[in-house]
Design a binder for these strands. Structure first.
Lengths: 204, 204
DNA sequence: GTCTATAATACGATAGAC
DNA sequence: GTCTATCGTATTATAGAC
């Protein structure tokens, strides 16, 4: 069902409704905590009807994770080895933060999966994430050798970008409890830009 | 059962065994994903025997979360308003990173709870976390006014410390998949020290 | 205090009518 | 394609013997 088989409009609409409802439920309660009843109700379908579109609960989850991985890595893929180093990295940071703001449920879906040991995503980490990170870290190292950015462990640099930006989606409840009525996303961009400009500025 | 009522040594040992097993299971599978069977087996008890010590599955979870909150906030509480600002903050960073290294399960227990909207911890966030953060942010702001550290949003500064350090515990699987055989905790301390020294250095 | 047995329910998945 | 009814199992929690 993950391929491009042609479907009727109704089928496509129902599949999308299921995935939308599943994203909401899985990201809030985790895989085990989610129930087909909740997802079916959210999609406006009966439980057996949901299972007409997907063979199992796990199939829905896997479809969601697989479909998101590509989108999630796009900003890193777009990092241009021939662009201006500082601006390329700052653009990456901005795009990642923007994804946390616009797609917090997707971020929490991943977070749930990784925190619990990535039982359904280990292969994607090894096959897709790791090679891409290796490639981009090589770019960072070239920039460092050319004196264009400060010397730093490139892997930790990428972890920094991930953790600092995704934190605002994954720990949203905590952030908002601490900040009260102030909108975290209003001030976070400037803060992160300042941090990364200082961190990346090449030493004299 | 959370109070200081006297108990026999056997009772204390069993309670500790239950909480240890529960930490393992809850942190790996989340609240809903954990089963009393797993916890009881991990503690070497039968399921009804476990329920002799705790009235319900939720009671075990709440006890774990409550007991950990204090420990978790200790490093922030210890931040000394009269100490050297940069060194105080770096010490806080180091201690938080050390907690991620030594107590990753505790970190993931919290992460699971927060990512899923903190259904059993909202009060603790409001009553304990927020006042402490407010107090320490006031200290940061005084340091900034005195020109001892760079001007930055103090709340985002604290979020940075949390996200950068806890990432190594919460996203352990991802970090290790990307870094392969290299130990993240061997290089992370130097990386984080460099980042925060640059970030906090007061402008001229 | 600890166990076996079991109640009571929740949940994923299927059967079969329409 | 969609529904109602239901099966089979997993899971929390309790009853009651020892």
């Amino acid at each position: 069902m993950a391929d491009g088989r042609p479907r009727t409009r109704i089928q496509q609409r129902n599949r999308e409704a299921i995935l939308e409802a599943a994203l909401e439920v899985f990201s809030t309660h985790g895989f085990r905590g989610a129930t087909l009843d909740q997802i079916a109700q959210g999609a406006g379908l009966s439980k057996p009807n949901l299972l007409y579109y997907f063979p199992s609960k796990e199939a829905v989850h896997v479809e969601l994770l697989g479909g998101l991985m590509d989108t999630w890595l796009d900003p890193l893929r777009d990092l241009d080895p021939d662009g201006d180093p500082i601006e390329e990295i700052l653009t990456y940071v901005r795009r990642k933060l923007e994804m946390s703001r616009l797609y917090p449920r997707e971020s929490r879906l991943f977070a749930n999966e990784i925190v619990q040991g990535a039982p359904r995503m280990k292969d994607a980490l090894t096959d897709e994430l790791r090679p891409l990170v290796d490639a981009k870290c090589a770019v960072f190292e070239r920039w460092m050798e050319d004196g264009l950015i400060a010397r730093l462990d490139p892997y930790h640099l990428i972890f920094s970008i991930w953790s600092l930006t995704q934190h605002y989606a994954d720990f949203d409840v905590q952030v908002r409890t601490v900040m009260g009525p102030r909108d975290p996303f209003k001030t976070a961009p400037d803060y992160l830009e300042a941090v990364f400009r200082k961190t990346l500025a090449p030493g004299t």
